[in-house]
């Protein structure tokens, strides 16, 4: 029976959400294609992690070795190369995360198998893999056919396959670690936690998110005044932090913070999925963007298609009027 392999992503003792999404996707694929789902857990002292995966896979391969106490893309690549060669899966699934991106393209290259990254849909058609990917700042989707092969590797975007409960009962199989030390040329040293600033945007009821549409740092007071009027905190998209206009702890998104306020107002933010990941669970989302095709309008509850430089002062005065 054909095997689909899914690489378990965990960090600092916790299985990452993407893992359960991948395993859900994997279960859907094996059900349709009469295959079996095997998880691969590389780690150290991972007994409780392994138990929590039992219902999600048919079989769980566990490598327990000190070298996997922390993540090193290189040790993962070498171990997975050995495991994939032995197991010969039809498909290997990995998250398109900081973890997966670091070892997957090079792993597939070393194995010499077709692969692609950041998939938002995966199908098996006539023994081949066809995926959906997103291009051009999320404004286009594409169907992509992978070259003919007996084995494929894919990275899958977070959030495209909501995690479901599993009802399997995996056989847990310990295997000897194919890798016992980190290579000299790439050594993990430590994790450094993100710095905490004076404002905690995750605690606010109203979050005013500003993006590249604000154009210049000199225009930021416009947003700050608006936030003050509505009683919210100012947060932002990544480019605003990249430009050093606001500190990192104000960034909303996959590489920043996740917020769930009662109201999120996105101002001049296009709605890249990395940003959406950090604010999609807000109770109400209002987006202000002059581009009616901006992906943010697929996520927002209310949209204002207009120039933010006109809308912000007008909206601010309406809010102050109501408050009076």
């Amino acid at each position: 029976m054909a095997t689909i392999l899914a690489v378990i992503e965990h960090r600092q003792g916790v299985i990452r959400d993407i893992t359960f999404e991948l395993l859900t996707l994997g279960r859907k694929l094996v059900e349709k294609n009469n295959a079996q789902l095997t998880g691969v857990l590389l780690g150290h002292d991972t007994q409780s992690l392994a138990e929590s995966l039992r219902t999600h896979v048919h079989r769980l391969l566990v490598v327990d070795h000190e070298v996997f106490s922390d993540f090193n893309g290189e040790t993962y690549q070498q171990a997975l190369t050995a495991i994939i060669k032995k197991e010969n899966p039809f498909l290997t699934l990995v998250g398109n995360t900081a973890f997966g991106i670091d070892f997957c393209p090079s792993l597939a290259t070393q194995l010499g198998v077709p692969f692609t990254t950041d998939c938002i849909g995966v199908e098996m058609v006539d023994g081949r893999i066809r995926v959906t990917r997103q291009l051009y700042d999320g404004k286009m989707d594409a169907h992509v056919q992978l070259a003919e092969s007996s084995s494929y590797v894919l990275t899958v975007r977070s959030g495209i396959c909501p995690a479901e409960q599993g009802n399997l009962s995996a056989e847990i199989q310990k295997i000897e670690s194919p890798v016992v030390s980190q290579p000299d040329y790439k050594k993990f040293i430590e994790y450094i936690e993100a710095v905490v600033g004076d404002v905690d945007i995750t605690k606010a009821d109203v979050v005013v998110g500003v993006g590249r549409g604000i154009k210049e740092q000199a225009n930021l007071p416009l947003v700050e005044d608006f936030a003050k009027a509505i009683g919210g905190v100012v947060a932002c998209s990544r480019p605003i932090v990249d430009a050093n206009w606001l500190p990192k702890d104000r960034q909303v998104g996959s590489s920043g913070k996740t917020v769930k306020p009662k109201l999120y107002i996105a101002i001049g933010i296009s709605g890249a999925f990395q940003h959406i990941a950090g604010m999609k669970n807000s109770d109400t989302i209002i987006a202000i963007n002059k581009d009616s095709n901006a992906p943010i309008f697929n996520e927002a509850d209310y949209g204002i298609v207009d120039d933010l430089f006109k809308v912000l002062p007008a909206l601010k005065s309406k809010i102050l009027e109501i408050k009076k």
Partner: peptide, 22 residues
């Protein structure tokens, strides 16, 4: 050189829940 993949077609992303535009 061989490529890994062939782009078959582009299409517009399906619209999600879509905001109510004021």
């Amino acid at each position: 050189l061989k490529s890994n993949s062939t782009l078959e077609e582009l299409f517009l992303p399906p619209v999600g829940k879509r905001a109510e535009i004021l």
